[in-house]
Design a protein around this nucleic acid. Structure first.
Lengths: 149, 149
DNA sequence: GTTTTTTACATAGCACGCTATATTAACAAG
DNA sequence: CTTGTTAATATAGCGTGCTATGTAAAAAAC
């Protein structure tokens, strides 16, 4: 009858996410980079000049969260924000040379942390794990969508 | 070569954890309860009168994190803190009647959120998922331990 | 063409995680 | 018994997430 935390997907997910974040943070902190900034850079490395709106859609965070992350990233010299040429409300985020320079080191750090986390899993188990996570994410997103009506 | 976020266990974990936290938050907010407070109550429902040190060990959070959570929980009337009878440095956290009263509603909310998240998984897949998460958590904890030396 | 609504962004305020540091009590050494 | 160290808690400061609200530009309605 007692709620067993070790049987709760949410509890385990929370714990796992904190361990991931701590490990990543430790690895990228020497670069002067923070986890959410790294996550945002992943998108900009893939496509530069995105607007705040585009970024928050791709990363699935709230608008205010992205606004704050972008402000810190501009402060720390990872991006510059310039007004959008066709839309007076929007701003585009552009990578600085410093941000392009740190790409390899940062993705290596993330790869290393993933490697540590998955050490005890076989290749097949790793694939299963990613698949299950994607399906769980999808289920919650769908449900959120339903809730919105 | 490009870092693929949908292939990164850490990225997916972070996303999944945010969805879990948002869902749980929405469900327990009517009770006046926040996620970390719920997590802490899980321990105290199981064993009342724990010290801050015992709680942070069981929940694997930093001491300062637990100190702040306990302060908010006392402020919100979930616990009272009294000096430990045998150790002048320590305090014990004791549940209020209000905290005992909310137990069923809160665990039901957590169960419901887990249910939504796992809708698309079979019983066997759910078991596999929990098992994989436990092993990933374990791997990162072991590695952290090694790092500490 | 003016008015209304929607959209993009900013800001305030809070929870919760972290590191780093201070404080005080307990314990160990001498 | 005094001194030095360890252990339990508190506090400051910050990043990242959230909700709620404000503002200005764009788009839609009329």
């Amino acid at each position: 009858m007692t709620f067993q935390k070790s049987e709760s997907a949410g509890y385990l997910t929370n714990h796992m996410a904190r361990l991931f974040a701590n490990g990543l943070q430790r690895r990228i902190q020497p670069l002067g980079l923070a986890p959410a900034q790294f996550m945002t850079l992943l998108e900009l490395w893939d496509e530069d000049g995105l607007t705040q709106k585009q970024l928050l859609e791709r990363l699935d965070v709230e608008q205010a969260t992205m606004a704050n992350t972008l402000r810190r990233m501009e402060r720390d010299g990872w991006i510059v924000r310039r007004p959008h040429p066709d839309d007076g409300r929007a701003h585009q985020a552009w990578l600085t040379p410093k941000a392009r320079a740190v790409r390899d080191a940062a993705t290596d750090a993330a790869d290393a942390q993933n490697g540590v986390a998955l050490t005890d899993l076989s290749d097949e188990e790793r694939a299963t794990f990613l698949d299950l996570m994607r399906r769980v994410i999808h289920a919650m997103q769908v449900w959120e969508g339903k809730e919105a009506r």
